[in-house]
Amino acid sequence: MTKTFLAKKEDLQRDWHVIDATDKVLGRMASRIAMILQGKTKPIYTPHVDTGDFVIVTNAKKIKLTGNKMNDKVYYTHSGYPGGFKEHPIKKWMEKHPDRIVNLAVKRMLPKTKLGSAMLKKLKVYAGPDHSHEAQQPKILEI
């Protein structure tokens, strides 16, 4: 009889990966990043343990959207107060905060639990090509 392997927090070895988002489709890239953050690409994946790696996304301002999403897609927020409903067209967010678009796409693909929040903290998104994580010696990951 074989025992089922369960990963423990103390035994984890986390890697750092760099993804260049230039000309990548947002949804396809975000789903791949979500898999890496959850640890589903590793053989030691355990559902109740955060086994994922760190991911650095550069050039977020150069992502692509398919179809006519650049003109049609809108994000909605509500402050909780009367009249607090706001619309944020993706075209304006691409100009001001392209890192938020990638972050939100990945966030919505992760579990909506405390574990999902911990996984999202391992995602670092930068609008330009530079990042401040050279000391971690990240590996370049092609998607």
Rank of each mutant, 00 (worst) to 15 (best):
K96F: 10
Y126R: 12
T22A: 05
P111H: 01
P82L: 05
V55P: 01
I143R: 06
G116D: 06
S132E: 15
I44A: 08
I140F: 08
V57Q: 02
E10W: 04
K112V: 09
V102S: 01
L115H: 02
N59A: 02
N103C: 08
R14I: 06
D72P: 05
I143W: 07
V102R: 00
G52Y: 01
Y126C: 09
I33L: 10
Y81S: 10
R28A: 01
S132Q: 14
P111V: 00
Y45A: 05
S117M: 12
V55S: 04
P43I: 12
K124F: 14
A21H: 03
R28Y: 00
T77L: 09
G128A: 09
G83K: 10
F5C: 10
W16E: 09
M1A: 11
D130R: 15
S79Q: 10
P47S: 07
T41P: 02
S31F: 08
V57K: 00
I33P: 01
K62S: 12
Y45E: 02
F5E: 10
M119T: 08
M29D: 02
P111Y: 03
G67V: 00
R32E: 14
G27N: 08
V55M: 03
T51Y: 02
E142Y: 08
W93H: 06
N59Y: 03
K107F: 04
T22V: 07
R28K: 09
E10G: 06
H17N: 10
K114P: 05
Y126L: 05
A34M: 02
G39E: 02
A60T: 01
I19A: 03
E87Q: 14
F5I: 07
A118G: 08
D130S: 12
H97I: 13
G27T: 01
V125Q: 05
L115N: 05
L12F: 14
I140N: 12
K112W: 13
I90D: 08
M70F: 07
K73R: 14
M1N: 15
K112Y: 14
K61R: 15
T2S: 15
M35G: 04
K107Y: 13
F85N: 12
K61C: 14
L6E: 10
M109P: 03
L123D: 06
P129F: 00
V102I: 15
L141I: 08
M70D: 11
H78W: 14
D11K: 08
N68V: 07
K121A: 11
K8N: 15
V57M: 02
H97T: 09
V18R: 06
G80S: 08
K91I: 07
V125G: 03
M70V: 13
K86W: 10
D20I: 01
I36W: 00
A118E: 06
V125A: 08
K96N: 14
K9L: 09
V57N: 00
P43W: 12
K96E: 14
D11G: 11
A34C: 06
K3W: 13
E142H: 13
M1Q: 12
H78G: 03
S132P: 03
K64Y: 05
L120N: 09
M119H: 09
L12T: 12
A30I: 00
K42M: 06
A7T: 12
I63G: 00
M35D: 06
K139G: 03
E142I: 13
T113D: 07
F54R: 07
Y81N: 11
V106D: 02
L120D: 03
K124S: 08
K61Q: 13
D99I: 01
D50S: 13
